[in-house]
Design a binder for these strands. Structure first.
Lengths: 245, 245
DNA sequence: ACAATTATTTCAATAATAGAAATATCGTTG
DNA sequence: CAACGATATTTCTATTATTGAAATAATTGT
């Protein structure tokens, strides 16, 4: 893998997570790159409009916005699906999320917020772990066995709440259940008080492995609520699949 | 400027404009890069989730979406401004656009479409020329003189319609008028039947040179319409500036 | 099954990159 | 406003990552 390209994106991604916080020297220190090297990358990226510098701290640049706006997964998939998600949100009045596999995590592609007060903090573009979120487990459940096993084997099962599955065997069992039931539940595994019900979504043509979910305060997720939600999610999925025939 | 970084983004940008159209060999030919070199860049970028390969043709990858979603100009500026633009659209029932300077062009950052049938085809993320669009000329009018002159001197003034200003002197005169009047008009200079009224928008803190505009069918842009629109645009700008105090 | 095209790997030559050190610039404080 | 400290930028050489020709493997179409 090209060292230069790798380093360039290492810098970009570091900046993405700490916009406006780091100077050249900081970045050089944090990334353990020579100061001159860091300088040259920052300089090049700035000239390409990929980064933007304000008072010697770095931000993501307009060029990334332009490119991001043209990502197929966004333009075709998100745009087509959005109205269906809005409708789902309206029906259930819980926050609706769309996520897809990205490396060994899930990326939030779209979100329609309910009118309720409590909201999850994740925003579009954020990444979330696969093993302790509704969408994540739903995605794991539909991946080709080889890939799924590979991920399950390598993911670090860190306990985020006391409900988080930290045992690989338990996770595998959970994935089997999801395959049988057709939906996954995150029962306060990622955040206390937050429950999430998800169904997997696969778009063959787009090499898309994702999921749609409804999430909200645990108190509103009784057995019956959940089965209503699962039905609604499955209906929404049918409508989505119809769009991509 | 780092050759590798430059080449990597050259490839990315080419793919952005022709997603799914080109294979490795094509790109190597088009960009006049050695096949092996092209291969290595594509390979690295794919591994970094910046590009995605489907049946040996390349698409922008989910990694770019993630980064694009985090661009400050989008998250802070666009998100804060959007409701004001929606309100403006509602009042005037013409399509509202937000654009900013990006290199020697203007990038559409946001758009709220009117309920009317005829719509411009440009979408968020697209770039438009500075010399023959409402937002473009508005932006040129508020840039530091040096930068503005530099751009005016170097831009190729290609006639897109018969109304397009192709004379550098005429463009300079137009920019002076805009500075005096505080608004710019694109009178079918970019597309027949399309008129656009814009006011410049400057956000000091963000190093932001942009403009907001109302655009629609020329028949609806009488003298009085235009002055009503300019007033509405100026009011909207005031509200925007208030957000960023 | 064969040809033709395309993708991928190998490997030596080289040019682009890395990094040390020097210099310039900026910001702060006495 | 001078002098310091920190940071950014430039210069320069050694070296290493990159390049690209050529060989090989994999696809694709006929």
């Amino acid at each position: 893998m090209s060292q230069s390209v790798q380093r360039a994106f290492e810098i970009i991604r570091k900046i993405a997570d700490h916009q406006g916080e780091h100077t050249l020297s900081d970045l050089s220190r944090i990334l353990q790159m020579n100061k001159t090297t860091t300088f040259r990358y920052l300089d090049s990226l700035e000239k390409l409009d990929i980064l933007e510098r304000r008072r010697n701290t770095y931000f993501l640049g307009i060029g990334l916005f332009e490119l991001g706006a043209k990502v197929d997964a966004k333009t075709s998939i998100v745009n087509s699906i959005h109205p269906i998600l809005e409708d789902l949100c309206l029906r259930m009045n819980e926050t609706v999320n769309l996520a897809r596999l990205s490396g060994d995590q899930a990326t939030y592609l779209d979100k329609v917020e309910s009118t309720r007060g409590m909201q999850m903090k994740a925003t579009v573009g954020d990444k979330l772990p696969l093993y302790c979120t509704g969408v994540g487990k739903a995605i794991l459940s539909i991946l080709p066995p080889e890939q799924s096993n590979q991920l399950v084997k390598n993911i670090e099962l860190k306990a985020i709440t006391s409900h988080t599955l930290t045992d690989r065997g338990a996770l595998k069992q959970a994935l089997d259940d999801i395959r049988n039931n057709g939906f996954s539940i995150d029962d306060e595994e990622y955040e206390f008080g937050l429950t999430c019900v998800a169904v997997p979504l696969r778009l063959e043509k787009y090499n898309f492995f994702g999921a749609i979910s409804l999430s909200g305060q645990t108190v509103r997720f009784s057995e019956e609520d959940i089965s209503r939600m699962v039905e609604a999610l499955k209906t929404a999925r049918q409508r989505i699949l119809a769009v991509f025939e």
